[in-house]
Amino acid sequence: MSDSGTVRLPLPAARTGAAPAQRRRVWRNSPLLRKACILLVLACVWQIYAVQLDKPLLFPTLTDTLQALWSSLASGALFTRIGFTLRTLLMGYAAGILLAGVVTALAVGSRLGNDLLETFTAMFNPLPAIALLPLSLLWFGLGNGSLIFVLVHSVLWPTALSTHAGFRAVSPTLRMVGRNYGLTGLRLVLRILVPAAFPSILTGLKNGWAFAWRTLIAAELVFGVSSGAGGLGWFIYENKNQLEIPSVFAGLLTVILIGLFVENLIFRTIERRTVRRWGMQA
């Protein structure tokens, strides 16, 4: 061991070490990259397993699935299904939120309303909305009405619950500040209470959306045809009956992608622009 050796050794080590260190930093700091890698690995595993299995009726390959997805998109068939599902969903979601607003207003406004909301949410929150579908079919027939009834149930209770909790958690100081400006009644609610409770309201909207999306796909699987059109759930069910298994997988993939899009892009963006910016994370 010569002196010059000990001096020279760290230099090349540092030079070659710089690039991996940088790569490690990129790896550590970008969750998106890590997740993309996981997806890539999963896709490879899927493809290899399906090719080896060689039973396209049970487990189609990734390439077949993507091909089916592409051809359904290109023919426009999948788009009409998506459009149908989203339209129904938005109607039910909007009605559910509107009702949640009314119910919350009643609950905030009076003690009896408060007890009413607590009783109803206690009753209906543990009940999966889809369990109401048989009754709903009986009452509203084979049509959009039934789907919307079930959707409203899936949205109303979780949304009302967290909105109500949000209102109750608004600090007394903020209420007093609002009244100090001479705000009363509806103006106090809209200009102070709603923004102050917004983190909880947003959580409610997010939960409501998640429940509605899952409920609707499930409901459409049970029955989806009305006036000659069906939604995504029906697309999956129909293709299974026709043994178009790659299309079944393509339908499932679409459900996942739309769910991811709304939850991670739309709601995440709203969150970033509002509650995160305001430092109000609920």
Partner: peptide, 20 residues
Amino acid sequence: RKPGPDRMMVFQEFDQLLPW
């Protein structure tokens, strides 16, 4: 009779500002 902007309050609590 009621709160009004002719008497402005400054509270002890830091959360008296509107966070949004």
